[in-house]
Protein backbone atom coordinates (compact mmCIF):
# COMPACT_ATOMS: atom_id res chain seq x y z
CA UNK A 1 0.00 0.00 0.00
CA UNK A 2 2.77 2.45 0.98
CA UNK A 3 4.38 2.17 -2.46
CA UNK A 4 1.05 2.91 -4.14
CA UNK A 5 0.56 6.03 -1.99
CA UNK A 6 3.46 7.72 -3.75
CA UNK A 7 2.63 6.52 -7.29
CA UNK A 8 0.64 8.48 -9.92
CA UNK A 9 0.41 11.71 -7.94
CA UNK A 10 -2.71 13.85 -7.97
CA UNK A 11 -2.64 17.28 -9.65
CA UNK A 12 -0.43 19.62 -7.58
CA UNK A 13 -2.94 22.35 -6.85
CA UNK A 14 -5.57 19.84 -5.75
CA UNK A 15 -3.05 18.04 -3.59
CA UNK A 16 -2.03 21.30 -1.93
CA UNK A 17 -5.61 21.99 -0.93
CA UNK A 18 -6.08 18.44 0.32
CA UNK A 19 -2.93 18.70 2.45
CA UNK A 20 -4.08 22.00 3.98
CA UNK A 21 -7.49 20.47 4.72
CA UNK A 22 -5.87 17.46 6.38
CA UNK A 23 -3.57 19.68 8.47
CA UNK A 24 -6.67 21.49 9.63
CA UNK A 25 -8.66 18.31 10.32
CA UNK A 26 -5.93 16.14 11.81
CA UNK A 27 -3.58 18.57 13.56
CA UNK A 28 -5.36 21.85 14.29
CA UNK A 29 -8.65 20.05 14.94
CA UNK A 30 -6.96 17.92 17.60
CA UNK A 31 -5.30 20.80 19.41
CA UNK A 32 -8.20 21.61 21.73
CA UNK A 33 -8.85 18.19 23.19
CA UNK A 34 -5.18 17.18 23.45
CA UNK A 35 -4.23 20.49 25.09
CA UNK A 36 -7.09 20.10 27.57
CA UNK A 37 -5.92 16.57 28.47
CA UNK A 38 -2.28 17.70 28.68
CA UNK A 39 -3.10 20.60 30.99
CA UNK A 40 -4.80 18.31 33.49
CA UNK A 41 -2.31 15.47 33.12
CA UNK A 42 0.53 17.87 33.92
CA UNK A 43 -1.44 19.05 36.93
CA UNK A 44 -2.04 15.49 38.13
CA UNK A 45 1.64 14.55 37.76
CA UNK A 46 2.55 17.59 39.88
CA UNK A 47 -0.01 16.63 42.56
CA UNK A 48 1.03 12.96 42.60
CA UNK A 49 4.72 13.81 42.88
CA UNK A 50 4.05 16.27 45.65
CA UNK A 51 1.98 13.75 47.61
CA UNK A 52 4.82 11.22 47.42
CA UNK A 53 7.50 13.65 48.57
CA UNK A 54 7.53 12.93 52.34
CA UNK A 55 11.25 13.11 52.84
CA UNK A 56 12.34 16.69 53.76
CA UNK A 57 15.77 15.96 52.27
CA UNK A 58 14.31 15.73 48.77
CA UNK A 59 14.00 19.21 47.26
CA UNK A 60 10.56 20.43 46.22
CA UNK A 61 12.00 21.33 42.82
CA UNK A 62 11.71 17.62 42.06
CA UNK A 63 8.04 18.30 41.27
CA UNK A 64 9.05 20.45 38.28
CA UNK A 65 11.64 17.86 37.27
CA UNK A 66 9.09 14.99 37.42
CA UNK A 67 6.51 16.96 35.43
CA UNK A 68 9.06 17.83 32.74
CA UNK A 69 10.39 14.28 32.41
CA UNK A 70 7.04 12.53 32.35
CA UNK A 71 5.47 15.02 29.93
CA UNK A 72 8.38 15.23 27.49
CA UNK A 73 9.49 11.60 27.53
CA UNK A 74 6.22 9.71 27.57
CA UNK A 75 3.02 11.66 27.99
CA UNK A 76 3.30 14.05 25.03
CA UNK A 77 4.63 11.64 22.40
CA UNK A 78 3.14 8.30 23.47
CA UNK A 79 -0.03 8.86 25.46
CA UNK A 80 -1.20 11.69 23.20
CA UNK A 81 -0.55 9.42 20.18
CA UNK A 82 -2.78 6.77 21.74
CA UNK A 83 -5.45 9.43 22.26
CA UNK A 84 -4.92 10.48 18.64
CA UNK A 85 -5.41 6.85 17.56
CA UNK A 86 -8.90 7.15 18.99
CA UNK A 87 -9.66 10.60 17.64
CA UNK A 88 -7.80 10.86 14.33
CA UNK A 89 -7.30 7.14 13.60
CA UNK A 90 -11.00 6.32 13.88
CA UNK A 91 -11.87 9.35 11.76
CA UNK A 92 -9.46 8.26 9.04
CA UNK A 93 -10.68 4.65 9.02
CA UNK A 94 -14.36 5.54 9.05
CA UNK A 95 -14.08 8.29 6.42
CA UNK A 96 -12.09 6.11 3.99
CA UNK A 97 -14.22 3.08 4.88
CA UNK A 98 -17.43 5.00 4.15
CA UNK A 99 -16.00 6.10 0.80
CA UNK A 100 -15.20 2.45 0.14
CA UNK A 101 -18.69 1.09 0.83
CA UNK A 102 -20.42 3.90 -1.07
CA UNK A 103 -18.27 3.30 -4.19
CA UNK A 104 -16.61 6.72 -3.94
CA UNK A 105 -13.21 5.02 -4.15
CA UNK A 106 -14.36 3.14 -7.26
CA UNK A 107 -15.47 6.49 -8.68
CA UNK A 108 -11.93 7.84 -8.21
CA UNK A 109 -10.44 4.72 -9.82
CA UNK A 110 -12.74 4.97 -12.84
CA UNK A 111 -11.68 8.60 -13.30
CA UNK A 112 -8.06 7.46 -13.41
CA UNK A 113 -7.18 8.97 -10.05
CA UNK A 114 -4.95 6.94 -7.73
CA UNK A 115 -7.21 6.78 -4.64
CA UNK A 116 -4.34 5.93 -2.32
CA UNK A 117 -2.43 9.00 -3.42
CA UNK A 118 -5.54 11.18 -3.34
CA UNK A 119 -6.70 10.01 0.10
CA UNK A 120 -3.65 8.85 2.05
CA UNK A 121 -0.75 10.97 0.78
CA UNK A 122 -2.22 14.27 2.11
CA UNK A 123 -2.68 12.60 5.51
CA UNK A 124 0.93 11.41 5.55
CA UNK A 125 2.15 14.92 4.72
CA UNK A 126 -0.21 16.50 7.27
CA UNK A 127 1.18 14.21 9.97
CA UNK A 128 4.66 15.61 9.31
CA UNK A 129 3.31 18.58 11.27
CA UNK A 130 2.43 16.33 14.20
CA UNK A 131 5.62 17.28 16.12
CA UNK A 132 4.36 20.89 16.20
CA UNK A 133 1.22 19.69 17.98
CA UNK A 134 3.31 17.64 20.38
CA UNK A 135 5.59 20.63 21.09
CA UNK A 136 2.51 22.63 22.08
CA UNK A 137 1.30 19.70 24.20
CA UNK A 138 4.67 19.57 25.99
CA UNK A 139 4.39 23.25 26.82
CA UNK A 140 0.75 23.01 27.94
CA UNK A 141 1.43 19.87 30.01
CA UNK A 142 4.29 21.51 31.88
CA UNK A 143 2.17 24.67 32.27
CA UNK A 144 -0.59 22.50 33.81
CA UNK A 145 1.93 21.10 36.29
CA UNK A 146 3.20 24.60 37.07
CA UNK A 147 -0.28 26.00 37.69
CA UNK A 148 -1.31 23.07 39.92
CA UNK A 149 1.94 23.10 41.86
CA UNK A 150 2.27 26.85 42.35
CA UNK A 151 -1.39 27.78 42.84
CA UNK A 152 -1.95 24.66 44.95
CA UNK A 153 0.90 25.85 47.22
CA UNK A 154 2.87 22.66 46.64
CA UNK A 155 6.01 24.48 45.56
CA UNK A 156 7.14 28.01 44.77
CA UNK A 157 7.25 29.14 41.16
CA UNK A 158 11.01 29.58 41.44
CA UNK A 159 11.57 26.04 42.74
CA UNK A 160 9.32 24.59 40.03
CA UNK A 161 11.32 26.40 37.32
CA UNK A 162 14.58 25.22 38.87
CA UNK A 163 13.19 21.69 38.71
CA UNK A 164 12.28 22.10 35.04
CA UNK A 165 15.80 23.28 34.24
CA UNK A 166 17.53 20.71 36.43
CA UNK A 167 19.66 18.14 34.62
CA UNK A 168 18.05 19.01 31.28
CA UNK A 169 19.27 16.81 28.42
CA UNK A 170 18.30 18.31 25.02
CA UNK A 171 18.71 14.88 23.38
CA UNK A 172 15.65 13.71 25.30
CA UNK A 173 13.55 16.27 23.44
CA UNK A 174 15.02 15.03 20.16
CA UNK A 175 14.20 11.46 21.24
CA UNK A 176 10.60 12.54 21.93
CA UNK A 177 10.30 14.17 18.51
CA UNK A 178 11.77 11.14 16.73
CA UNK A 179 9.13 9.01 18.46
CA UNK A 180 6.49 11.56 17.50
CA UNK A 181 7.44 11.38 13.83
CA UNK A 182 7.24 7.58 13.84
CA UNK A 183 3.90 7.60 15.68
CA UNK A 184 2.61 10.23 13.26
CA UNK A 185 3.36 7.97 10.30
CA UNK A 186 1.66 5.06 12.09
CA UNK A 187 -1.37 7.28 12.75
CA UNK A 188 -1.62 8.29 9.10
CA UNK A 189 -1.08 4.91 7.46
CA UNK A 190 -2.47 2.13 9.65
CA UNK A 191 -6.01 3.55 9.96
CA UNK A 192 -5.96 4.37 6.21
CA UNK A 193 -5.06 0.74 5.49
CA UNK A 194 -7.96 -0.53 7.62
CA UNK A 195 -10.42 1.83 5.92
CA UNK A 196 -9.19 1.28 2.38
CA UNK A 197 -9.10 -2.51 2.44
CA UNK A 198 -12.26 -3.11 4.50
CA UNK A 199 -15.11 -5.03 2.90
CA UNK A 200 -18.83 -4.96 3.68
CA UNK A 201 -21.24 -2.23 4.68
CA UNK A 202 -21.92 0.32 7.40
CA UNK A 203 -21.55 -2.23 10.21
CA UNK A 204 -18.13 -3.25 8.94
CA UNK A 205 -17.05 0.42 8.83
CA UNK A 206 -17.63 0.53 12.61
CA UNK A 207 -15.80 -2.74 13.11
CA UNK A 208 -12.91 -1.53 10.96
CA UNK A 209 -12.65 1.63 13.09
CA UNK A 210 -12.44 -0.43 16.27
CA UNK A 211 -9.89 -2.84 14.77
CA UNK A 212 -7.89 0.08 13.47
CA UNK A 213 -7.84 1.73 16.92
CA UNK A 214 -6.68 -1.47 18.61
CA UNK A 215 -3.92 -2.16 16.07
CA UNK A 216 -2.76 1.45 16.01
CA UNK A 217 -2.46 1.45 19.82
CA UNK A 218 -0.62 -1.88 19.86
CA UNK A 219 1.75 -0.72 17.12
CA UNK A 220 2.45 2.58 18.90
CA UNK A 221 3.17 0.83 22.20
CA UNK A 222 5.48 -1.76 20.61
CA UNK A 223 7.20 0.92 18.52
CA UNK A 224 7.63 2.99 21.70
CA UNK A 225 9.47 0.12 23.37
CA UNK A 226 11.68 -0.54 20.33
CA UNK A 227 12.52 3.15 19.82
CA UNK A 228 13.31 3.63 23.50
CA UNK A 229 15.61 0.62 23.42
CA UNK A 230 17.40 1.96 20.36
CA UNK A 231 17.51 5.67 21.16
CA UNK A 232 18.09 5.84 24.92
Amino acid sequence: MLFEVFKRPTKGIVLKELILKEINDLIIGSLGITAFIALFMGAVVALQTSLNLDNPLIPKSLIGFAVRQSIILEFAPTIISIIMAGKVGSYITSSIGSMNVTEQIDALKVMGINPLNYLVFPKVIAMLFYPFLIAIIMFVGILGGFLAAVYGNLVSAQDFIIGIQDNFVPYQVLYAFIKTMVFGMILATLPSYHGYYMKGGALEVGQASTTSFVWTCVTIIVANYILTTILL
Binding site: M99, E103, Q104
Partner: peptide, 16 residues
Protein backbone atom coordinates in the same frame (compact mmCIF):
# COMPACT_ATOMS: atom_id res chain seq x y z
CA UNK B 1 -8.58 6.63 -21.39
CA UNK B 2 -10.11 7.05 -17.96
CA UNK B 3 -10.23 10.81 -18.39
CA UNK B 4 -12.55 10.03 -21.29
CA UNK B 5 -14.81 7.79 -19.24
CA UNK B 6 -17.87 8.77 -17.26
CA UNK B 7 -19.54 6.48 -14.79
CA UNK B 8 -22.94 6.71 -13.17
CA UNK B 9 -22.88 4.42 -10.15
CA UNK B 10 -25.90 2.55 -8.84
CA UNK B 11 -25.81 4.50 -5.57
CA UNK B 12 -24.53 7.70 -7.21
CA UNK B 13 -21.15 7.60 -5.38
CA UNK B 14 -21.08 11.37 -4.96
CA UNK B 15 -18.21 12.65 -2.85
CA UNK B 16 -19.98 13.42 0.40
Amino acid sequence: LRENMGMLFQHSALFD
